[in-house]
Computed example of a mutant assay.
Amino acid sequence: MPLMPGAEPYHHRAGPIGVLLCHGFTGTPQSLRPWAEYLAARGLTVSLPRQPGHGTTWQEMNRTRWEDWYAEVEKAFEDLQGRCAEVFTAGLSLGGCLALRLAEMHGDGVRGVVVVNPSITNDVWLMKLAPLLKWFVPSVPGVANDVKKPGVTELGYSRTPVKAAASLPELWSLVQADLDKLTQPVLVYHSTDDHVVKPASVAIIREKVPQATIEELADSYHVATLDNDADRIFAGSLDFIRTHASVPLQRD
């Protein structure tokens, strides 16, 4: 299946600290590519995989489930573990959910977590109907490209595949149930004006992950990694990694 131009994964080998970046639901690595390149330019080993069903067609994505997306980021995480002394996980939207799940499953194997507008709960009425709708409706309008900054476009599907979406509640439930397992430092960036993910996800993290630091973004919509606050996210995540890594970065 041909890829959308710009949807390619990104990998960069550098120093002993690795960062795994996870893109969001119906999105592509393009939404995190500037973040990945920023970290790579500062001596970090970076992995930004393309999850199955993404970056091709929404019809293909309808043949995948959350287990397929998690398996891909798990594979990338294990590869980083084999190359790096320490690994951090990070992600946007549902990618933030996957980053948190990796930390729950791997414990001390994940040094810290950075998430941007994470999605960890069923907060949209249409999503609540997805398990039923999947038998009658193949897709609904998409959620990609919620960006405030003029002239910037997120590469993602214009339609949301309902069968794929119907698998999300299981993942959300697992992640919520295991949030108390998180002992790692967690940094959360939250757009105050987000048209895709409601505040409920960050509220749950605030309640159940006491060590989490919440940073509000006042000038970005959902895809904040491509928006007006992107530079703040990039620099802040680098400071977070520098603070919590036990080995120095290779170079600036």
Rank of each mutant, 00 (worst) to 15 (best):
A177N: 11
V197D: 03
S220W: 01
V209G: 08
T192E: 13
V188R: 00
I205F: 03
E216R: 10
D178A: 13
D193S: 15
V223E: 01
E215T: 12
E215A: 09
P199F: 11
V209H: 02
Q184L: 07
V197K: 04
T192Q: 13
K181A: 09
Q211V: 10
S191A: 12
V202Q: 01
L179E: 10
S191W: 00
H222E: 08
D178S: 15
K198S: 06
L182D: 00
L217T: 01
H190P: 00
Q176P: 00
T183R: 15
Q211A: 11
D219W: 03
S220P: 00
V209I: 12
D219E: 13
Q211L: 09
P185F: 11
T183K: 14
D193P: 02
A177K: 15
H195Y: 10
P199M: 11
V196I: 14
E207Q: 13
P199V: 03
R206Q: 13
S191G: 05
Q211K: 13
D194W: 13
V186L: 14
I204V: 12
Y221W: 14
A177E: 15
V196W: 10
V196N: 04
P210G: 04
V209N: 01
R206H: 12
A212E: 01
V196C: 11
V197F: 07
V175N: 08
L182T: 04
D194A: 08
H190K: 12
E207N: 08
V209T: 04
Q211I: 05
E207Y: 10
P210L: 06
I214P: 00
D193F: 07
Y189T: 01
D193G: 03
V188W: 00
Y221Q: 09
L187R: 06
V209M: 09
Q176M: 12
A200R: 12
D193K: 14
D178P: 02
A218N: 12
T213R: 14
T183P: 01
V223P: 00
E207V: 06
T192F: 00
Q176Y: 05
V197A: 08
D180G: 10
D219C: 10
H195G: 10
Q184V: 14
L217Y: 06
V197H: 06
V202K: 03
P185M: 11
L182H: 02
L217V: 02
V223N: 03
R206E: 12
V196Y: 07
L182G: 02
T192M: 12
H222T: 10
K198R: 15
T183I: 09
V197G: 01
E216L: 14
A218H: 14
L217Q: 02
L187P: 06
S201H: 09
L187F: 00
A212G: 03
S220R: 04
E207L: 08
E216F: 11
A218V: 05
D180W: 15
D178Y: 10
L182P: 05
I204R: 08
S220D: 04
V196K: 05
T213G: 06
S191T: 01
H222N: 09
L187N: 04
V188N: 00
E216S: 09
H222D: 07
Y189V: 04
H222F: 05
T183W: 07
A218D: 11
K208E: 07
A177Y: 08
K198Q: 13
S191P: 03
V196G: 09
V209W: 09
